[in-house]
Amino acid sequence: MSEAILRVFRGDANGGEEKEYKVPVEEGMVVLDALHYIQAEYDGDLAVRWNCKAAKCGSCSTEINGKPQLACKSRMDKFPEGQPIRVYPIKAFPVMKDLVTDVSWNYETNKKIPEFTPATDEEFTMYQDDVERIQEFRKCIECFMCQNVCHILRNHDRKDAFFGPRFMIKIAERVMHPMEKIDRREFLKDEAGVGYCNITKCCTEVCPEDIHITDNGIIPLKERVADKYFDPLSWVLRKIKGK
């Protein structure tokens, strides 16, 4: 059995430092297993969020060797042997303790999105072809790694102005739902800040569910908003109608 070296951030909102641990590696082991080994054998108080250990719940988002990923999905044998594996909390949200961050902003933001509002009380007739594109968005496991790498949130900290990629596709899933009745374009532009996204596609790259967040979600939303607000013909009509 080989041995791996993990350097794990230990600390809280007031700061902290890396701590080194040696962990035996068995076949197929993932970084989350190594963190559990540390808890059981060295530091029982090492804080890490996790639930399913099967890449289905999106709880264990961390930055491993600088790259945001799910700790339960990061195989130890993918890292170069003999080199330390550095495990840090995701950076766009405040550290609570060790690898656990305060992601409550995401939950507050979600609440601002008006719920799905069906156009009918009758049983839905919808075809597979019509729902497939929103089923893609609904694969989201809310790991918030797209929020973590979004420049608007991570580098510019404009959480006041932009809901972030996770909630762009949440809005997209409602906008593109065949039975949805409300027009969300004004909300998208003024509240959710769809215009802030500059399509660098970093969110799409880190998505563990391979959702094409930018191409299939945000760009079509931008187009819809542009059609309403920036189409010259409708601009003229709005002026005439005084709206």
Binding site: Q39, D43, L46, V48, M96, K97, D98
Partner: peptide, 9 residues
């Protein structure tokens, strides 16, 4: 070990 803050043990 440790404090009461987010202490899995």
């Amino acid at each position: 070990e440790g404090s009461r803050m987010y202490n899995p043990g």
